[in-house]
């Protein structure tokens, strides 16, 4: 839609390693400037523009602050549009995925809240490792395939974290 690059909007260079606190500070500065509240007594056209610009700012911020979404966005900046769902050939990771899923099911069966907390911490550190690896290779054209694989692993972890949260809801009943 011809919108400017999310990173440029925040006056940042495209990079996976981001200072999230700094991003938040810039987000608040920008939001202050263009939020529709600032234009409550402006013309209808200005109000509409403020609404549109705020919406794209919010979109950019939510993309950049999430590691898997940021990774995906970086890859689309450097290459073709990526399909959302693909069958991934990643046998090594597949095994890991199955182990995690089994563990999650066991945690559900045993209603083990302490176990869930430990599991969450492990997912978090796995995310960290993937992020570090991705940061090293995403900008190397020769390693594009590896970068895509890492990004999809990050997406899987993100989905799994979501499932952990749903499990926590159920255990809370």
């Amino acid at each position: 839609m011809g919108s400017p690059c999310h990173f440029a909007l925040f006056d940042l260079q495209p990079s996976f390693r981001l200072d999230l606190d700094q991003l938040a500070v810039r987000y608040r500065e920008l939001a202050r400037a263009i939020h529709p509240d600032r234009f409550a007594d402006a013309s209808e056209r200005e109000q509409r523009l403020a609404l549109e610009q705020s919406a794209s700012l919010n979109q950019a911020y939510s993309t950049l602050k999430s590691a898997p979404q940021r990774a995906r966005y970086l890859l689309t900046l450097r290459g073709p549009e990526l399909p959302l769902e693909v069958t991934v050939q990643d046998p090594e990771f597949l095994l890991q995925q199955m182990q995690w899923r089994e563990e999650l099911e066991d945690l559900q069966d045993s209603a083990d809240l302490a176990g869930v907390a430990v599991f969450k911490r492990r997912l978090k550190s796995a995310e960290q490792v993937l992020g570090d690896e991705f940061a090293e290779c995403w900008d190397e054209p020769a390693q594009r395939e590896q970068a895509e694989r890492l990004m999809r692993r990050m997406q899987f972890l993100d989905k799994l974290s979501h499932e952990v949260r749903q499990l926590e809801e159920r255990l809370d009943d």
Binding site: P36, L51, E52, S54, A55, S56, N58, Q59, Y61, S62
Partner: peptide, 8 residues
């Protein structure tokens, strides 16, 4: 819990 305004 998505921040508004939002367009998707």
């Amino acid at each position: 819990n998505t921040t508004i305004p939002v367009a998707r």
